[in-house]
Amino acid sequence: MKKALITGITGQDGSYLAELLLEKGYKVYGLRRRTATPNFENIKHLENEIEFISGDLRDLTSLTEAVKATKPDEVYNLAAQSFVGDSWRQPIYTSEVTGLGVTNILEAIRLSKRDARFYQASSSEMFGKVVETPQKETTPFYPRSPYGVAKVYGHWITVNYRESYDMYACSGILFNHESPRRGIEFVTRKVTDAVTKIKLGLQDKLHLGNLDAKRDWGFAGDYVEAMWLMLQQEEPDDYVIATGETHTVKELVEIAFQHVGLNYQDYVVQDPQFVRPAEVDILLGDPSKAKHKLGWESKVSFEDLVKMMVDSDLAKNKGQ
C-alpha cells in the first residue's frame, strides 16, 4: 500500500487530494498544525480515514519527525499562508511559511526519506506582472505580492533540491482553482456566498475591488489529479496546470447573479479598499505540456464551476 503525507490537508486542495488518494487505495497522513480551534470542515467526511501527524512548516524538527514516523512514498506540500491579500499585512509570516517552509519540508525528506517523491504547490501568482501571455513553464517570474515572492522562492528551492540531491521533486504551477470548499476570503467564494445571501435577504450589497482583473479559473477537483499524475512519471518535472481560458471578475459576478435570477448591477459596489497595492491584471496559463506529458486536462467549465459554488452556498445559507 502506497503512503502519502499531505501538508495543508484541511484546505480546499488537501481535502480533494485526500479523497483522490484514498480512492486509489493509499494510506493518507495529514500534517496538522496545533491550533486552538482546528478547522475540519473540508475533511469532516474523511476524518476517520486519515491519520493526523502534528507538525508545523516553520519547525524542521517536527517535519523530520513526521517524515520518520510515516515513511511516505509521496509528500504533497499544499500548506501555505495562501491568501494574497493578507500577504501585505503579514509579509514576514508569509515568507516563513510559504517560502522557507518549503526548504524545511525538503530538508526533512532529504534527512529522513530521500526516495520519497515530493510535490510543491507553486502558483500562477509567481508570474504576477506577466511578461508574456499565455504563461508557460519557461515564462519568467515577476511576482507582485509578498505571497508571489515567497512562492517563487519555494519553486526554485524545489528545483535546487532536485538538481543538488537527485531528489524526485516537482512543482505544479497551478492557476486559480476553485470549488465549494474554497475559503470565504477568496473572490470566487466571496461572490457566490454573497449572491446567495442577497437572494435570501440576508445581505444587501456586495463590495468588490477590480472587476476587470482576468483570471484562469478551474475546478480544484480536476487540479489535484494533475498533482498526483506528476508524481507518477519516470522523471520529475514542473508543469503549468490551467484551463487555458481567461475570465474577468465581472463575468464571474454576472454568471453567479444570473444563476439566482438577479442583475448584478443592482447589488455590486466597487470599493477602493479591495484594490491591491500592486494588481495582477491578467493570468492565463498554457497547459499544453501537462496535456501532452501527463494526459491531463481541465474538465469542469467556468460556468459550471460558478453554478456549482452558488448551489452549494445556497444550500448552506438556507440552513442558517
Rank of each mutant, 00 (worst) to 15 (best):
L202V: 04
G99H: 07
H292S: 11
V67W: 02
E23K: 15
R33M: 06
A116N: 04
S179A: 11
G25E: 03
D304P: 10
V152Q: 05
I173A: 01
K250Y: 10
G295F: 04
R114Y: 08
Y223H: 14
A36Q: 13
Q270E: 14
E41V: 10
R114Q: 06
W296H: 00
Q90C: 13
R181N: 13
Y267P: 02
G285D: 00
G8R: 01
V152R: 02
P91W: 00
S54H: 14
M227D: 07
N39S: 11
K190N: 14
R58K: 15
T196I: 02
E49S: 14
K2E: 12
V130D: 06
D193Q: 07
F302Q: 05
L21S: 11
F219Q: 03
P72M: 06
M309T: 01
A213N: 05
M1C: 07
M167T: 01
Y161G: 01
S123Y: 08
Q203F: 07
F118G: 01
E178S: 15
G99R: 08
Y26T: 01
L284F: 05
N42V: 04
V97F: 13
D237M: 00
E279D: 12
E96V: 12
W156Q: 11
Q233K: 12
R117V: 03
K318Y: 13
L174F: 15
V306R: 03
N176K: 09
V152E: 03
E234G: 15
P272V: 03
G101Y: 05
G11N: 01
F186T: 09
I6R: 06
